[in-house]
Amino acid sequence: MAFVIGIFFSIGTYLILTKSLLRIILGTSIIGHGALLLLLTMGGLKQGGAPLLGAEAAPYADPLPQALILTAIVINFGTTAFFLVLAYRAYQEFKSDDMKKLRGPEHE
């Protein structure tokens, strides 16, 4: 898992550092997934039943990281959606998704 998370973070960082806005957004969402996986791993990967009343397993897995991840996914979803809309607006306005062209005049 640690390797997977590492790969996610490095890809995400690479994408964020590129010029294209769309890639930056993809990068943030990949880093986001890396962070969520890290949360899951750090909560401890154990063998155990799903923490549900219906599943009758003797040892249950720790439900807390899962609850946290669900919340974090919802938040990620919201921010990514907003970021996409923002990027789309910026694309309409500037006719480009190149970060260098978005920078504009230094002193306005």
Binding site: T28, G32, A35, M42, L68
Partner: peptide, 13 residues
Amino acid sequence: SMLFIVAVAYLYA
């Protein structure tokens, strides 16, 4: 915010 999640993960671990 992503770093925040990471820090929370470490702290929880």
